[in-house]
Design a protein around this nucleic acid. Structure first.
Length: 788
DNA sequence: CCAGTGACTTAGCAGCGAAGTG
DNA sequence: CACTTCGCTGCTAAGTCACTGG
């Protein structure tokens, strides 16, 4: 935000503060019709009694009656609940100030024009804005550079003013539809109960979807199977059925289909480099027109210009609809959005569009309705477009503005944790959880969706309380990612959570039964325009990153600094609970690195032993250098020997095979079994040598070796050991943390740019190409002094 | 008022080419 | 050079939140 805007915000805010200190959060109590006090005698909330699967089957009605009393009287340690518990909370004059009052003065009509400005000018605008920070008060200075000043304001305030309008003109070439279904060759069939099935094409396609996924976890999921089978049978029936009566999923055999797809894949892989290149070139040429569009006369990338192909819905977690058929989207389903009067893209031969719209209040280019959840899918601009950039910029500016209000907000909710009104306590407690543990808002979800929760939808069974103040969170959040944390909380928060869990509440019941995300957000708006629950995540993520970066000393190599940057990034990712599934190979690859480390260690020790054999006197000269000679146990050494031998053998065999393959192609005489034997004999000799070495503890020495050579070997090995150790630690630390999501969505990119410039780390080491494009505005605008 | 709708951001993962390794 | 591992990108599911209209 601009300096002057911040000023206004500050002064207004302070003025307000004098009138009513901690109004916003408590304001709700005076307005609310639900005057249930924390200590009981309230009407039952509608939310109570809503049950999920986790709850034990009980009579809901009976429970509702029981739960009607939400008293805190039996809370033994609740001595600091206000005495006024039976009265309505102290009313305060409703606060009139809103954020809009702050924003309004800035909103001149001239800013509307700014929406037309292109990206380059906008970037300049940000730069100017930063420079202007030092000139906050000086209005005359501002007028001096009015021309440019105007532009800079326009950039980021344009949409505040004219939030309605997203574009002046928009022209594009429509969308790409997936290729038509290609029937399988006649010998590739589904089998049922051992017999080949003649499927109509429509059904064959659906069966093929499953066949292609046979080896995935989805295909083993009973819900997936059930949903797939239902939809498959329906498609089959609608297409006229087939020669076999298919009634049992488990009698379906997709293996022929699966093998066929595998074969196609292998075939594709085997194509020569040039062939692959040619195919790609053709594809690129075909897609070219769809990749870009004209926004206000400027060329911009389109994001997802391909219509999603049909397939089986892969829901995440325990999604009730997983495996259902995602039907093919036809042009008749697709609505286009573009400027009035511009050329309308031709629909595919013999088809027509569902609708052509000219709505410049939205930023999508095309839209269709999907058949799984009946929701919309959009074709949108790419992340590097000005539209997305602007909204990203605004997102970060909003979250950045939160720093002016966060102290007050925290003070208010801390105070309100003790409010006698149940709703207010829930409100305050939710604010605390969202702020401190970066929980999501947690809206309501339907029966036909995966059972995941956020703050407001947390249920009884999702938290465990361990006095005096420990809370264990254990629930599935967005994408069914597990949120598990054992934490210590504010004492009053602990008490409140205990109250929210008090009988008659039981598993299946909402903890926060008197609040909802909209209610929460309404409160947040009183502090700051645009403040919602999700802003806290962005704010706290970026704030954490800033703090972590500030701790990094400006020294060392680029690689070291990158490692430290990533560590800071990781702190944020952990805060936001951004996880990734540990790869199937993780365990073995960690083991591999361990083994490698051991082996390096062994090599190093071995080299040192050789040094001593050549020059025994060295041990007295530098005992430290030879300290580790006995670090490896005999068993370990033997184990390593065996591994090395085995690997050598394997390599010899493979090499033999490879050479023979080559000779075969060249039509030359092949190596014989005897050649192989000879090579193996060499390995056997090495094996004997090692066995001997194990007995004597003395490695054999080659004639050509010298102490100098060995010392340099040791040094190389030491370096490799250090590097590998770091690599291992990084791998383990990162195995289940995903850094990408926070870098892309939560950490203000200007922080990364600041780090890059201040620490002389090339931005390429911190942002991938795509992120550099997406955050170009930040790269061009932030300098080494930028602060979140 | 509030449930439903619509539009947007946030999210993890598959697949693939690039880079690293022996 | 062959093989493995890494890291990026594209894909699309799953959230949030504002708005609408009965």
């Amino acid at each position: 935000m601009s300096s002057s805007d911040d000023n206004v915000a500050l002064s207004l805010r302070n003025g307000d503060m004098d009138q009513d200190e901690d109004m916003p959060l408590s304001q709700i109590s005076s307005k609310s019709t639900d005057t249930t006090s924390v200590d009981g005698n309230s009407i039952e909330s509608k939310k109570l009694g809503k049950k999920r699967k986790a709850s034990t089957p009980t009579n809901d009605k009976a429970k509702k009656v029981k739960r009607a009393k939400n008293t805190i009287k039996s809370e033994s340690d609740d001595e600091d609940i206000p005495l006024a518990s039976t009265t309505t909370p102290p009313k305060k004059t409703p606060k009139k100030k809103t954020e809009s009052a702050i924003a309004k003065p800035e909103n001149g009509t001239k800013k509307v024009k700014s929406a037309k400005k292109n990206g380059v000018k906008k970037v300049d605008a940000i730069k100017k804005e930063n420079e202007a920070k030092t000139e906050k008060e000086s209005s005359s200075t501002r007028e001096d550079e009015e021309e440019e000043e105007e532009e800079k304001y326009k950039w980021w305030e344009a949409e505040d003013v004219d939030g309605e309008q997203k574009w002046e003109s928009l022209e594009h070439n429509g969308v790409i539809f997936p290729p038509e279904y290609e029937p399988l060759p006649s010998h590739v069939k589904l089998h049922y109960d051992g017999k080949p099935v003649d499927l109509p094409l429509e059904a064959e396609e659906v069966a093929g979807f499953f066949g292609a996924m046979m080896e995935t976890d989805h295909a083993k999921n009973p819900t997936f199977q059930k949903n797939f089978f239902e939809d498959f049978c329906k498609v089959l029936k609608d297409a006229g059925g087939c020669n076999v009566n298919i009634i049992d999923f488990h009698k379906m055999d997709f293996s022929k289909m699966h093998a066929h797809f595998e074969m196609l894949r292998d075939q594709k892989k085997l194509l020569s480099k040039d062939e692959k290149k040619a195919i790609k070139a053709e594809k690129d040429k075909f897609e070219e027109p769809y990749k870009t569009c004209l926004l206000n006369g400027h060329k911009e990338q389109v994001g997802n210009f391909r219509i999603e192909p049909p397939g089986l819905f892969r829901g995440r977690g325990a999604h009730p609809k997983t495996g259902k058929l995602k039907r093919r989207v036809m042009p008749e389903d697709v609505t286009l959005n573009l400027s009035e009067g511009c050329k309308i893209p031709e629909p595919p031969q013999g088809h027509k569009w569902a609708e052509v719209r000219h709505d410049n209040t939205v930023s999508w280019l095309a839209m269709w309705k999907e058949n799984i959840a009946d929701s919309f899918k959009y074709v949108r601009f790419a992340a590097n477009s000005s539209i997305k950039g602007l909204s990203d910029f605004k997102k970060f500016e909003t979250s950045r503005k939160l720093r002016y209000h966060i102290d007050e907000i925290r003070k208010d909710y801390t105070k309100m944790l003790k409010d006698p009104l149940m709703q207010n306590r829930q409100m305050a407690t939710a604010c605390y959880l969202i702020d401190i543990f970066a929980l999501r808002a947690g809206g309501e979800k339907g029966e036909d969706e995966a059972d995941t929760v956020g703050c407001c939808s947390l249920r009884y069974e999702h938290i465990t309380l361990k006095p005096p103040n420990k809370v264990i969170f254990d629930f599935l959040g967005k994408d069914s990612i597990r949120f598990y944390q054992e934490v210590e909380v504010d004492k009053q928060v602990f008490k409140n959570l205990r109250i929210f869990k008090k009988p008659p509440k039981q598993p299946g019941d909402d903890l926060f039964d008197r609040i909802s995300p909209p209610l929460l957000n309404k409160q947040f708006q009183n502090y700051m325009k645009g403040l919602t629950a999700k802003v806290f995540r962005t704010y706290n993520a970026s704030k954490t990153m800033q703090d972590q970066l500030d701790l990094i000393p400006n020294e060392g190599t680029v690689a070291e600094k990158v490692v430290k940057f990533n560590a800071a990034n990781r702190t944020v990712a952990i805060l936001c609970n951004h996880q990734r599934t540990v790869s199937k190979t993780h365990g073995s690859s960690v083991q591999k690195i361990h083994d490698k480390l051991k082996e390096l260690e062994w090599q190093k020790i071995r080299a040192k032993k050789m040094i001593l054999q050549l020059e025994p006197g060295l041990k007295r000269k530098d005992p430290e250098y030879f300290e580790e000679l006995d670090d490896l146990s005999k068993e370990d050494t033997e184990h390593i020997h065996r591994a090395v031998i085995e690997r050598t053998r394997e390599a010899a065999r493979k090499r033999f095979q490879r050479e023979n393959d080559k000779l075969k192609i060249e039509d030359k005489p092949l190596l014989t079994e005897k050649d192989l034997q000879e090579r193996m004999e060499k390995v056997n000799e090495l094996e004997k040598e090692y066995a001997e070495e194990l007995k004597t503890g003395k490695p054999q020495i080659k004639k050509s070796i010298t102490v100098e050579k060995l010392k340099s070997q040791v040094e190389t090995l030491t370096n490799r050991i250090v590097n590998t150790t770091f690599q291992l630690k990084d791998k383990e630390d990162n195995s289940e943390v995903s850094l990408g999501t926070s870098k892309m969505n939560y950490i203000d990119p200007r922080l990364t740019v600041m780090f890059s410039k201040k620490y002389n780390v090339p931005i390429e080491k911190l942002f991938t190409k795509t992120l550099r494009d997406k955050f170009n505005w930040a790269i061009e605008s932030a300098d080494e002094n930028w602060k979140f």
